[in-house]
Write a protein that binds this DNA or RNA. Structure first.
Lengths: 200, 200
DNA sequence: CGTACTTTTGAATCGCATCAAATCTGGTGG
DNA sequence: CCACCAGATTTGATGCGATTCAAAAGTACG
């Protein structure tokens, strides 16, 4: 399905590129960019969710970034090809901007340049955390690490299914279910609706 | 030991910040920055090696970045605290620049801003690769992935010991030795001095 | 009510971590 | 030059936890 283009402009887009921003809406499971293809737009997510993912030959998927608000695949600005797939997981409203416009804004507008560098830096820190998490050997260690890093005060809101979360944690969904069940049974974890809470 | 300060200026430092750059030399195993401490300098490595690492309570170490040339810990520009330890692994010559100077250069000099964003982006891509690698289950898959991503044409130069490489791959050194021995025995890998070569 | 998907549990297998010990290596000081 | 030492490399045995394959139960949605 072709994206529905509108001409709205949004306050949450950095002023420097509002002029070149174009609102687009996608249904779930639409591909915004495919591994190895040349990127031409940068996407700013307003609502819904876009995932940056890679899939192995066996069909298993690793989710590298999930964005519900803000820029996705920021690193593709200076790349000639996408290094991941870019896919919506649900109906998503976003704004797209030509790479060239971003590049130019970076050149001309130092506030935007600072903001961009800041975004990249924080994504870098997030990924370093993710890397460290993947080096942990047990599912329990990864769950605790994720809650401590990405949640607040021992609580994390799961944006989606446990199965999705499993592929972010680099576990099979079975392993994650069992880990959570074990932690819950021994009182180290509580589930509250869409949240997980570390006990004590 | 206090760093030996000199006043040399170097061509490989971006012009915009050469004025505020200060050459420093460190012995091996010197700590340039400690986890949770406030960063005040950014380091540009000229020779030697600096590692960005985290260590678990059991003493095991995960190497998140190894730099032999270029900026290290770029993400700390916008952070109030280091999120890793910053340590030399051998005698290292680098140039340090106050964060403030970098920040200002970013503001004033659009070429530098572009270069900085470019550096951050490529580090981001490298880290995404590392994340994907950590999601692979066997040592052999990780070795192949690393050679394909970080090496060139099926060959990688190991910058350091196999033991070091093991902690980058998220494996114990024993597991890595065994993996390499197995691959070599079955003819899928060849060792040539400091290099590993994928066969076929 | 049926379909697609997630969640859950079970059993067998695989590969890494762990602990232990021996060998090899490069560099130091006597 | 040689003894020595710290560290890397290597091999072995054992156990643990995740993966895998399988199947059942729960859930959301048309």
């Amino acid at each position: 399905m072709a994206p529905l283009a509108t001409t709205a402009v949004f306050e949450d887009i950095p002023p420097a590129i509002r002029g070149s921003a174009e609102a687009v809406n996608y249904a779930a499971r639409k591909v915004l960019g495919r591994l190895w293809s040349a990127p031409s737009y940068m996407y700013f997510i307003r609502s819904g969710e876009v995932r940056l993912a890679r899939s192995g030959r066996a069909g298993e998927t690793l989710i590298l970034q999930r964005v519900r608000q803000g820029w996705v695949a920021e690193a593709s600005l200076f790349a000639t090809k996408y290094h991941c797939d870019l896919v919506t997981s649900e109906p998503t409203a976003c704004v797209r901007v030509r790479l060239q416009a971003i590049s130019q804004a970076l050149e001309v507008n130092s506030d935007f340049a600072r903001e961009w560098a800041c975004t990249l830096s924080s994504e870098l820190r997030r990924l370093r955390n993710a890397c460290e998490r993947m080096s942990l050997r047990t599912g329990e260690q990864r769950v605790v690490h994720a809650i401590e890093c990405e949640g607040s005060r021992g609580r994390i809101d799961l944006p989606g299914t446990l199965k999705d979360w499993a592929s972010e944690l680099g576990l099979t969904h079975e392993a994650l279910y069992r880990t959570i069940a074990r932690m819950e049974a021994s009182g180290r974890l509580r589930r509250e609706g869409p949240s997980l809470v570390l006990v004590r």
